[in-house]
Amino acid sequence: MSTYVITGSGSGIGRLVAERLAARGDRLVLVARDAARAADLIAAFPGSTPIVADLADPASLAAAVAAAELPETVDAVVHAAGIVELGAVADLPLDAWTSQLAVNLVAPAELTRLLLPRVRAARGQIVFVNSGAGLTAHPDWAAYAASKHGLKALADALRGEEAVHGVRVSSVYPGRTATPMQEAVHEQEGAAYDPDRFIDPASVATVILTALDLPRDAVVSDLSVRPGPR
């Protein structure tokens, strides 16, 4: 049985990854923003361990990790949580920048730092669920793309730093995926939402599990996932 720490397990890609891992008997440590969400996750995933912390407040993570009953080794951390607020640079308020940078970049960096001793002990893996916006920035996506470009930089640097400890680092870059976040994006864009046009989140979950289960002689460093032909 392996131990996986997952953010964003309440919905979308993170939820499906948690379901797949739980179904095969792995131990889950799930990050929840408050006690109520933690109770919901424990009910959905019996036997899981919560870390109660709001990723919008990265400074809260150290105390939350210290308070959680964590094993000595962690086989992988899957960073699947994220938020998005669209807008032109001329119009975006300061908190749209700071909130997206906090949740999408600073919190993953801090949680990774806090868990690295346990991941090193397992010669484990860090998986960052990035975005196509982490590779290319389009109009109205500046803040979100900046946070995801930063996440790529974090992963690239970490991969080089942690190779000596046997830790693998993977970045997955999904294109538009039929998740609740995508539905919210369409609301912000004022566009009709048709989930059949986009990647099934189960397909992205399969890619993440493939990266996690890859034999130790290789690592998925960067992998883009795009909608297939219809």
Rank of each mutant, 00 (worst) to 15 (best):
M1N: 11
S2W: 13
S2M: 11
S2T: 15
Y4H: 09
V5Q: 03
V5I: 03
V5D: 07
G8F: 02
G8N: 03
S11Y: 06
G12I: 03
A18W: 01
L21I: 07
L21S: 03
A22R: 10
A22K: 05
R24S: 15
R27A: 14
V29L: 12
L30C: 02
A35L: 14
R37G: 14
R37F: 15
L41M: 00
L41G: 01
A43M: 04
F45A: 09
S48I: 07
I51K: 11
V52E: 00
A53D: 05
L55C: 04
P58R: 08
P58T: 06
P58A: 05
A63T: 09
V65L: 01
A66V: 10
A67Q: 13
A68D: 01
A68V: 02
E69C: 13
P71Q: 07
P71F: 03
E72F: 02
T73G: 00
V74L: 08
V74E: 12
A76Y: 01
A76P: 00
V78T: 03
G82S: 03
I83Q: 01
G87I: 02
G87V: 04
A88V: 14
A90T: 15
A90C: 14
D91M: 04
D91G: 13
L92T: 14
P93Y: 02
L94K: 14
S99R: 13
Q100S: 01
L101K: 12
A102I: 04
V103D: 05
N104V: 02
N104Y: 05
L105A: 06
L105W: 00
V106A: 12
P108K: 00
E110G: 13
E110C: 13
T112P: 04
R113N: 07
L115M: 10
L116C: 06
R118P: 08
A122G: 09
A122Q: 09
R123L: 04
N130P: 09
S131G: 07
G132R: 13
G134H: 08
G134V: 01
L135W: 13
A137L: 15
A137W: 14
P139S: 11
W141L: 07
A142V: 11
A143V: 12
A143M: 02
K148L: 03
H149Q: 06
G150S: 03
G150Y: 09
L151G: 06
L151A: 08
K152R: 15
L154G: 11
A155S: 09
D156F: 08
D156K: 10
L158Y: 10
L158Q: 15
R159Q: 08
G160Y: 11
V164S: 15
V167D: 00
V167F: 03
R168S: 06
V169I: 04
S170K: 04
S170D: 08
V172Q: 06
V172R: 07
Y173N: 08
R176E: 13
P180Y: 00
Q182M: 01
H186N: 12
H186C: 07
Q188P: 02
A191L: 13
A191P: 07
D194H: 07
P195C: 05
P195T: 03
R197A: 09
I199H: 02
D200H: 08
A202V: 02
A205G: 05
T206I: 12
V207L: 15
I208Y: 01
D213Q: 12
L214M: 08
R216N: 11
S221A: 15
S221C: 12
S221K: 10
D222H: 14
D222P: 14
S224K: 15
R226E: 05
R226N: 10
G228Y: 12
P229G: 13
R230V: 11
